[in-house]
Design a protein around this nucleic acid. Structure first.
Lengths: 184, 184
DNA sequence: ATTGCCTATGCAACTCGTTGCATAGCAGGA
DNA sequence: TCCTGCTATGCAACGAGTTGCATAGGCAAT
């Protein structure tokens, strides 16, 4: 449902082919919306049929041809309508939380390396966010509307990663404590 | 894939029927894992066929019979194996973040009421968490392993909601500022 | 020379998840 | 009295999302 809208936003920010969109979804947009190339190609065809996007075949040498899509006016109008509609709260699926509760019926110490692995992943992501912030927003005092909105989303990502890191430290401390209690 | 594991954890914590599980998934477990009754019934039948859970028909008066499931040893072993396997990072789908970036191509002010609605929802959830903490963990100095692990997950939920509230305030402030700039 | 990776798109088959509906008795309120 | 809602399970159909594979040329490294 909302994949169309995420694609529209990405095409409004910058037109591109299905392949390019797939890579953006692996990188920047993928921070808050994931999609495989299969989904993207399928949805793009539907959106083109509905007139939400316009496609232009571009020949390239040394590479396969590509279809460059850009957002069309009906798509922009649909996006404006969607903006004004209420959206359901996200359905969370936090596998690590399930594992933590599951550890009560097994050995809590068995989870430590897994939690550490997650911690490293989140630390790396935070570093990437902070690096990206430096690169894309060198001067925070002069941002246009688009940049202001991109930056407030980025701030959300940064705060989320900081909070998650602190929580994972809390989890690790708890697991270590429970493992020590069990031994004694 | 992981729904089986979430169900196993819930059944280890407390045996119950498909219907009861569905309600737990609406309440406590649903904070980090969602599922409809349809999914739960289907997965329970598969898990019973695989020997992961055992079912017992229970007749009730004034109500339909129910099948009470409990975790069986092969299920517990499968859970222990899963605990030791690495899990992929969660695939995030943050619709509100898409909307915020979409607002750059429409009127940022149009998003304010939607963000306020989300803010209220998160404030209510935080209040429920804090209330539940008081009720379920009145004495934090004497918790067993299971309670320790449940509480560290709850702390994660509380911190997530606090962080989200602060971020939504940040978003609202940004939207108001952009709306004022646009008028002048 | 061969292997592997990148660009670029797509088909087919599958699983996961949601929605609508059905049954069926009982309880409570308008 | 009728309507709504709760307990309890389930079928059928659909849509969303994933996975494996295919094509096909170019580039870089071994």
């Amino acid at each position: 449902m909302a994949l169309e809208h995420a694609i529209l936003v990405s095409l409004l920010e910058q037109p591109g082919s299905g392949y390019e969109l797939a890579r953006r979804f692996d990188r920047s947009i993928g921070r808050f919306w994931t999609a495989t190339h299969q989904q993207i190609y399928r949805v793009l065809r539907r959106m083109e049929a509905d007139g939400w996007v316009a496609a232009e075949e571009v020949a390239q040498d040394g590479r396969p041809d590509k279809k460059v899509y850009s957002a069309a006016e009906p798509g922009r109008a649909a996006l404006a309508g969607w903006l004004r509609e209420p959206v359901e709260p996200e359905t969370v699926r936090h596998e690590l939380a399930v594992k933590i509760r599951a550890a009560a019926f097994d050995d809590p110490a068995a989870l430590i390396s897994e939690v550490e692995r997650h911690r490293e992943g989140h630390a790396a992501l935070l570093a990437r966010y902070l690096h990206g912030e430096q690169r894309d927003f060198p001067d925070l005092t002069s941002l246009d509307t688009r940049q202001e909105l991109q930056h407030v989303v980025l701030r959300g990502g940064i705060e989320y990663e900081r909070m998650t890191l602190a929580w994972l430290d809390d989890v690790l401390e708890t697991l270590h404590r429970l493992a020590a209690d069990r031994q004694s």
